[in-house]
Design a protein around this nucleic acid. Sequence first.
DNA 1: CGTCCTCTAAACAACT
DNA 2: CAGTTGTTTAGAGGAC
Length: 791
Amino acid sequence: MMMQESATETISNSSMSQNGMSTLSSSQLEAGSRDGRSSAGDTSSEVSTVELLHLQQQQALQAARQLLLQQPGSGLKSPKSQDKQRPLQVPVSVAMMSPQVITPQQMQQILQQQVLSPQQLQALLQQQQAVMLQQQHLQEFYKKQQEQLHLQLLQQQHPGKQAKEQQQQQQQQQLAAQQLVFQQQLLQMQQLQQQQHLLNMQRQGLLSLPGPAPGQAALPGQTLPQSGKRTRRAGGVEEERRGTAGLSPAELQQLWKDVTGGGAHSMEDNGIKHSNSGTGNGGGGGGLDLSTNNSSSTTSSSNPAKASPPISHHSIANGQSPALNHRRERERERERERESSLHEESGGTHPLYGHGVCKWPGCENICEDYGQFLKHLNSEHALDDRSTAQCRVQMQVVQQLEIQLSKERERLQAMMAHLHMRPSEPKSSPKPLNLVSSVTMSKNLPSTSPPNLPQTPTTPTAPITPMAAMPQVPSVLGGANVPSMGAMRRRHSDKYSMPLSSGGDTVFIFPEIAPNYEFYKNADVRPPFTYATLIRQAIMDSADMQLTLNEIYSWFTRTFAYFRRNAATWKNAVRHNLSLHKCFVRVENVKGAVWTVDEMEYQKRRSQKITGSPSLVKNLPSSLGYGSALNASLQAALAETSLPLLGTPGLMTSGSTMGGSCHGLLGGDPSILTGGSPPGLLGASPPGLLGGSPPGLMGGSPPGRLSGSPPTLLHSAHEGLNGSLDHLDTNGHGSPRYSPPVHMPPIHVKEEPLNMDDDDCPMSLVTTANHSPELDDDRELEEGNLSEDLE
DNA sequence: CGTCCTCTAAACAACT
DNA sequence: CAGTTGTTTAGAGGAC
């Protein structure tokens, strides 16, 4: 024992040091994202138009001043007059025209906030068009003015003295005034140009709202503010959201509507899922279909712009395994990426034009020449709702790609680190995380499972979002370095399962881990759940609702990067929890013993915690199983699909279930909506993802530990993933363990068998139904498959 | 401030 | 014997 422990400790320590790296990197990323956000960022909530206008005016003013100051060859030789007038006139004039002028920053802000109304966009467009003409006109005007000035100056040199001077001054003033006007015009032009550029970029999807820090950045769809509780987490998340989240759920929904022309509910595939939780985005799931939206990749939409914006509704329904979908999505994304890069190169003239084809997302209109393209651009992709929506979608795409990129980078790093190639570490972090993982992994897994897979795919890499997403995380990560990794105090675990009402019925959104699956799998972030919750989840996740201790361990390690280190600690905790909580029942098996969950007890325990609202408790049971059956599958699908793409928790949403009804349920409590899943990343907010709902949701009982996440959902969600894995079991163990799932474990060693009557476990239906009896029992298999599944 | 909950650590027994 | 599994106790810290 001792030896083992000491050994593990050593390892863990080393790993910890390594973690430092991850921490740093994550912080870096975060910083990056922040930067990115900065532009848009601060305006967390929507800004009223008036405010925007004010901002615009101010910025315009500043810009104008700068311009005037810089204006080198303005032609005016008498600075005096100019100086005097500047202050007065410029502001006014600028202010006058400011309304229509939007600086790039503002533009970005607006876009990010989704504040940009169609009207505004329209205005921008008009400006753009006008710019061309104005430009020419102004240039001519400018030349003339200069000439005039010169002439005047020359003339003035001859005449008398005082009169001359006066005249001169007057003239100069006049000129100055003119100059100002001119400059203003120039400024306007400049701004317009900038705007145009911005628009172009956006069209192209180049405009990335969130900062580079992909990671954090965001998961777009989440935006909602969080509720007061969990301030920490919320805070972190919020920050992230601001920065990252380009679109609020509501906005996305709207977007979808715009794009699709109607309902957005397809939860599909897009990899982007927005957590409904959010502010009430209620929206169902609006996911954006990245694949389709993007340009060429989606060949299907020959008629680009028009009607079919590439929103695909296939996903879930299409019968393909989510995993496959995910992969495909990823591939598509990559393709798009490549394409975009190509476009840039080849396009030359216009980012949206290349190879004689309009590169507008979804549009492949053939344009003989650039002029034709411009025409096409202005006619087909003018500023309208559709274009706006597509623009937004593109923004989302970019965000996602950035996130993906960061993830891939991290992975690469981890891989290299693992191979001892040690790439340049992101930051001078004292402790490299990545390595740790492998080490720890080997440590942990060795005994149980072959080290092979686990590490590769999962190397705890994506520190990114975590931080932002989960406030708590930071502490954890930070703590990671230090011996004491803070406790998971801040877990929402059970507390946050949120019951949402979908279609009137209260449904438990039980996304639990599913949505954030990918995130936690890769990010060395401590999951915001208690051990008990996780253990339960692990068990529920299994085909027959029972796992051996070792399998539970395996689940932890494969599901959470965080548990790939410090094995001694968390394993001990797991054992401790298994023993301590009545809800975990040990069942003697031929092979040994397996652990099952006494759902009754589990719920009991939670319900007890829920002080206030009995109603909540009451809801639990019912909500657990039934109402959500459908939703469960959907969620599962969503979760799966979204995971790969996003890789970030935030994106995922609870899916359709949460969708529309969220608002209603959550009602006033924003926290609920966000469900803890912060927008962005974290969908981002991890918390939200997993737990689903903040306490508030639950009938307002604060601590709502009810979380009762019905196994069903989760299970179903995972089925796709895990199920396949399970089957894969190479060991051939098919060991049937105990067939009876949750229901009644054959032997309850630990406690008296609770009344696990059939009634008790509604979920059992779901979970068990799908599964084939044989499971994997080996961790090894699981481990090996892990990567695949998860991926 | 007290209580509750969870996490962590550790000791120990039983089993493999 | 070494390692794993399971139980139990105790202390610390956070949340309410």
